[in-house]
Every structure is written in structure tokens, then in C-alpha cells.
Computed example of a mutant assay.
Amino acid sequence: MRKVLFIGLEKDEVRDITQNLNIRTIHHELIPKLIVQDDKLFVEHPNIFDCMIQIDIVIFHGIFENDFDPINALAIWDGVCLPNPVALLNCRLKHPCLARALRITKFKMPHGFVVNGSINVKEESVAKWGNWHCGENKKRFTGEEHYPQPTVIEPFIKGTAVRILIIGNKSWQIQLKGDDWLKSIHHETSYINTSIDEELLEDTLNLKEHFQLEWIAVDYMVTDSGKRYMLEVNHIPNMDRFPEVREHYTSFIKNWIGEKLNNL
């Protein structure tokens, strides 16, 4: 029986995915100990101390504080893994991901960058630092500011925040909402649009192909005059906020595992 490792998914998601699949499930909600040896992947047993199990398939979903090296291990293993771990490596650090995305998107805006120092801006701008999402590590400012850590500087754009989400061949446009200038999919008033901006969809598809991701979410700002600007690429987007997205997400993974089992 093939052993499938799930990292970061919720228990109910794993239950829905694995129902009627002839597999042995190994589930870790947090990053487990991983070892790659002789082109084989081993993971610590979730219930037995100091016991490592060889894994056939990996499903990874989540952003963790120290996940870059475990993702690197999955990439070096080069086994059957969803999403593509090399794509995750290319997206996990936000600033390099942004630099790559700006070479692909049609909707880029001018950016500044501070490695460690001060910057003085005349127009209202946004500073972004770190590798977390959900509106953290962002600040609006005008004038001079000092940033001791690597920080991206971008113009503050007034308008509507939207997300184009793609899982496999299915796509949605999500209206991001918030109580202030920070907009998020997690806000209770966020919703799925009945239509989708075809140019933003095409742009997101180009980014998905460039990064070779099985799923992707790209955030954009749309001004009142219709100008569009790409904000960021999300390689591990939220799949739980809307039931129809969650249902397609779990079905996609279930079908993907089924296809891979036939080829192992």
C-alpha cells in the first residue's frame, strides 16, 4: 500500500481527500523531520518516537516559520509532490518572488528597495518586509523612514483589491475586503465575483505557467479609472474561506493522487 504524507492540511481536509483511496495516510499538521537518502524520502512517524517511514507521495500546504529547508528537501528528493517543490522554493521568499513576477506580469508598477537604511518619498507609499502574508509587515508612510531589514517600497494605490485564484484549470475572481486600507480574503465581507477580468486571468495564467505551480493566487489593485497593478503572488493561497473553492481544492488533490497511484 502506497504511503501518502500530508503536511499542513487540516484533519477534515485529509479525511475528504483520502476517502475511498487505497493508501496509507501519514498526517503532520506542522513540519515534520524529513530525511532524503538514496533518492528515498523518510518522515518521522506521527505516533511512534524515533521511527522513520518511507514515503511515496507528498501533499504540502501551508506557510511555516522555518519551512524553506524542508521544502528544499522535497525538491532534492524529486519525488511525487504536490505542489511542485521547486516552484515553492521560487515563491517562498516574497522579495525574490516579486522580482521574478515583475518580469512576467503586464501590470507592474515602480518599486523601490531598501536593504538596510533610510528612504525619503514624496508620494504616499507602502513598505513591505518579511515573508508573511495576511497584511502583516506592511506600513503606509510619506517622507523619510528607516528600515533595518530588507524592505520593498511601492506606491500606495487607491482602488479595489481583487484576487485571481486558479486551481488546476478552474479560476475565480475574489473581491478582497477590509476595515481599513489593508484588504484580505479573510475579511467577513470578502466575496467571489460572478464574472472575472479576462486580462487579469490571462496575467495570472502566465504567472502560474512561469512558476510552474499547480495552484496560484495573484492579488491586484484596480483603480477607479480602470488601471490595474499586480501586488503579489501567493503560492499557498487560502482554500478554506469559500466552500466551493475548498470542495474543488480537495477534489483536485484526490484526483491528482489517484492519477499518480496509477503511475507508481
Score class of each variant (00 low, 15 high):
H146E: 15
N137I: 02
H187L: 04
T194F: 01
G79R: 06
D39P: 00
D50Q: 02
E13R: 03
D69M: 11
M1P: 15
D50Y: 03
I119H: 08
L213K: 00
I185L: 05
I71P: 14
T105H: 08
P237K: 07
D203C: 06
D12G: 12
D203R: 01
W77T: 12
N238C: 07
P83L: 05
V233D: 05
N20R: 06
A75Y: 07
K158H: 10
K139S: 12
S125C: 14
L264E: 06
R24G: 14
E154K: 11
F211S: 07
Q19F: 13
L41M: 12
L261I: 15
V86D: 05
N255A: 04
D38V: 02
V126E: 04
L5N: 02
I76R: 10
Q37P: 02
K183E: 00
S125P: 04
Y249P: 03
G135L: 09
T189I: 00
T151D: 15
I166K: 12
R100V: 08
W129G: 15
C97I: 08
D39L: 12
E136R: 15
H111G: 03
K177Q: 14
K33M: 09
I174Y: 00
T194D: 08
L82H: 10
H187F: 06
N234W: 04
C81Y: 02
D240A: 10
E244I: 06
L21T: 13
N206Y: 09
I35S: 14
E209C: 10
G117F: 13
Q175I: 13
D16M: 14
T194K: 05
N262M: 11
L102Y: 13
K183I: 02
E247Y: 10
S184L: 11
G79K: 04
P96H: 03
N90C: 05
T189C: 00
